[in-house]
Design a protein around this nucleic acid. Structure first.
Lengths: 168, 168
DNA sequence: CTTCGACTATTCATTGAATGTATAGTCGCG
DNA sequence: CGCGACTATACATTCAATGAATAGTCGAAG
């Protein structure tokens, strides 16, 4: 429920409504996947159901009705818990790239070479974007760059292992 | 629909039934998240609906009924397409780790230090597992190790940026 | 010989995540 | 005044994921 936690994080400051939360998300987590409206309201309802947020007020001042949500005491506790918890460090791999290689087996080498080039191209793009981005965007770009690099390194080791296997 | 593609990959060899596919998945993609039974049968039904697989036969020889699924011509084409397509190189970041830091802002440093230690511990575990694993498990472990390392590098740059910001 | 646990094989119910579309009001502009 | 852009929410649908339920077979222990 990462999205829920992020929204709780935004609600700490003050009560907000769905539309505002979507905007804030896309701004503060620029570089992350933009949050769909449908997702926002669905998540807010779950938060309310679980007692982590509650409807503070419904405004109707010249414009569509707005439902303000506020974080509850339970919500603050949960947010605090989430912020201090460490990520489980991925007990297993969930990556399409890995899945493809596992399925393709030794026929994967041609594809891996293409993938390497695509990654390199994307890395050049991201590096260019970093020059003109906000601090949040730079942080996101750094994250992406490091993980693309990790893919590249893994591709090299995978290719090396295939070659070994061929020789044997 | 990565799971669907993986199942198609297994069906190329010969027609198989759900239970068998689950076992094969957990064996060939050891190190990846084990596939739940419910998931297998739901996915098979989608594949059938989309004309990528079809029921080849239902056997009933001493034991529960088994429904064998076979890959279709369309399925083979789709599998081929998938195997040769390159991954979109992640147009955006979707990581709980990044989300946490984006939400926590400059208060994230304490948490990052803990996360770093957790990652290092997991990396030691994985390295140990590599010694006794099958080739598939070694490949999966390598993948995980490279990405944990990427997280670590990113954590360093994030911490450095926070320090910069404090000084300014 | 019988019952108990392990294994094979599938199904169902529920929840969450994600996407796309519909609705409806306001505001400014030409 | 009509049209497009923006604010704000709701609804329908689909996929993904989890857990529990069902039901039959088989071997081993008592």
């Amino acid at each position: 429920m990462t999205t829920g936690h992020v929204l709780l994080g935004f609600l700490v400051e003050r009560a907000k409504h769905g539309y505002e939360l979507k905007k804030e998300h896309d701004h503060r987590l620029a570089g992350a996947k933009p949050l769909a409206y449908g997702q926002v309201y669905a998540t807010l309802q779950r938060l309310e159901r679980d007692g982590l947020a509650e409807v503070a007020e419904t405004q109707q001042e010249g414009g569509p009705e707005r439902t303000l949500y506020a974080i509850t005491a339970d919500g603050k506790a949960e947010l605090e818990r989430w912020l201090n918890a460490v990520e489980p460090s991925a007990p297993f791999v969930a990556s399409p790239l890995f899945a493809r290689v596992a399925v393709a087996g030794k026929d994967a080498d041609g594809f891996l070479v293409l993938q390497r080039e695509a990654h390199l191209a994307r890395m050049r793009e991201l590096t260019a974007e970093k020059a003109s981005g906000s601090p949040a965007q730079v942080l996101a770009a750094d994250y992406a760059l490091h993980h693309l690099d990790a893919d590249l390194r893994w591709i090299e080791t995978a290719l090396a292992r295939m070659k070994e296997h061929d020789d044997a």
